[in-house]
Write a protein that binds this DNA or RNA. Sequence first.
DNA 1: TTTTTATTGTGTCAAATATACACAATAAAA
DNA 2: TTTTATTGTGTATATTTGACACAATAAAAA
Lengths: 228, 228
Amino acid sequence: MKLQYNVPDISITVDCVIFGFDTSKLQILLIKRASDPEKGKWALPGGFMEKHETAEESAERVLSQLTGVTDVYMDQLKVFAAVDRHPIERVITVPFYALVKPENYRLNPSSYASDAYWCDIDRLPILAFDHDEIINAALDALKRDVRLKPIGFELLPEKFTMKDLQDFFEAVLEEKLDRRNFRRKIKGAKILVKLNEVRKGAHKDAILYKFDSKTYRTISKNTFYILF
Amino acid sequence: MKLQYNVPDISITVDCVIFGFDTSKLQILLIKRASDPEKGKWALPGGFMEKHETAEESAERVLSQLTGVTDVYMDQLKVFAAVDRHPIERVITVPFYALVKPENYRLNPSSYASDAYWCDIDRLPILAFDHDEIINAALDALKRDVRLKPIGFELLPEKFTMKDLQDFFEAVLEEKLDRRNFRRKIKGAKILVKLNEVRKGAHKDAILYKFDSKTYRTISKNTFYILF
DNA sequence: TTTTTATTGTGTCAAATATACACAATAAAA
DNA sequence: TTTTATTGTGTATATTTGACACAATAAAAA
C-alpha cells in the first residue's frame, strides 16, 4: 500500500481560455455546461486534472477533445483559488490561455458540454463560476505577451496581409496604431516574408506575407522583444 | 453530509522564493528540512495549502511563520506539476516569490525546518525536489518584473543611495549599467525623493534618497513602466 | 601634513528611435 | 467615367538612448 502522509481535500481543475481571431475580432471558445453545478451556463472548457497528467497535459486534453487541435501555443496563468469559487467542493483551477488558428479548428462538444461556440470578446455572456475573471486575466496576459513574443502568428492564418496583422495588434492592445509606423516597425523586425501573392478585395490588392520561421526561433529565445 | 462528486488524489502545496538584498547581492531564504522526504536537505520554505486558505494566504502563513514578516510584496508563479516531482505522493505546488527588506526580518525556523539561512543567489546548495527550477523561474520573473514595476523599493531599506539602487538593478538584471545614464533615467522617472541626509563612507559622501510613495501608486496602476 | 586612491556627482554630443503626417495607385461599385 | 474606400510609401521633427571625462571629496597611506 502506498504511503500517504497528507489527506488532500482540495480538487484541481484546468480551465482553458482559447483565443481565436476572426473578422478583425478576438474570440473565445465557450461551452455550455451539460451537468451541475451551473448546468446550462456558459463556461470555459475545462476539467479535473488527472493523477497521471501534468497541468499542461490536462489542458491539452481538454483542448484537443473539444477542438481536435493539438500542438497549439499555450501559456499558464496564475491559479484561481478563492475559497468559495466553487459552490460545492473546494476546487482550485490552473488556467491556461491557448491560441488557435481559425483554419485548424472544428468544434467537437463532448459529454460535459452540450454546446460550444466562438464568442466575440466584447459580447461575453454571463459565465459560470469565476470564469469572467479568468478571461480578464488571460486578456491581460495576452496584452503583455503580444509585446514580448511574436504570438500574432499563432492566431493568424498562414498567409495574411499587413492589415490583418495590424488588426490583430489593435484588437489585443485595444488601441489604434498608425499604419505607416506599424509597417515600418514590422519590417524593421524582419519577421515577415513577402509572398508573390496578393489578396484581391474591394479595392487595391493587398500583398500577402507569411511569418519567417527562422527569425521566430531567434526571437523566441530572447527574453525581450518589444514591438509596441 | 457534504456532497463530494470528485475524489481528489493530488495534494497542493505552496513554496516561497523569498528574496533579500544585502551587500549588493541577491539572497534567497532557505530552510533545512526537518522531516522526510528529503529530510536534512536544503529547500524552499513551503507547506500544504489548507482547505480554508487561498494560495496567497497559505504563502503568507509560510512566510510569516518563518520570518515574522507580514505585508510583503508577493507574486505567484506558474505551478509546478511534473508527475514525479515528489517521491511519495502526487503533489503540485503553487510557487510564490516574495521580497523582504533586510531591516524587517528575524528568522524563526519552526517545526518543519531545523535550520534556515540567507543564501547568496550565486552559491546555492543542492536543493530538495525541483526547488532549483522553482528558483530559476522566480529569478526570471524578478528579471521581468523589475523592468515593469518599481519593485526595487520592496527590497531596499527605506533610505538608500543611488549606488544601492543601481547595485540592485545590476544584481537582478545580471548586467552592468552606465552610472550617469542610470541616474538620468531614475531621475526622469520621478520615483525618488532626495533627502537632506548623506551616508558617510570611505570616500565622498553619498546622498540618501527614499522612494516617492505618491508616484508609486500611479506607476503601479500602469501596465507598463519600462526602466531598462 | 601631504599625497594617493577610490568613490560620488554631473553634462554633452551623436546615433537611434518614435511620432506625426499626405498623397498617389488601385479596383470595385455607383 | 466618376466616386469611394483601401493599399502602399517617405520625410521632417522630437524624443530617447548610449558613449564618454573630469572635478569634488574623504579616508588611508606615505
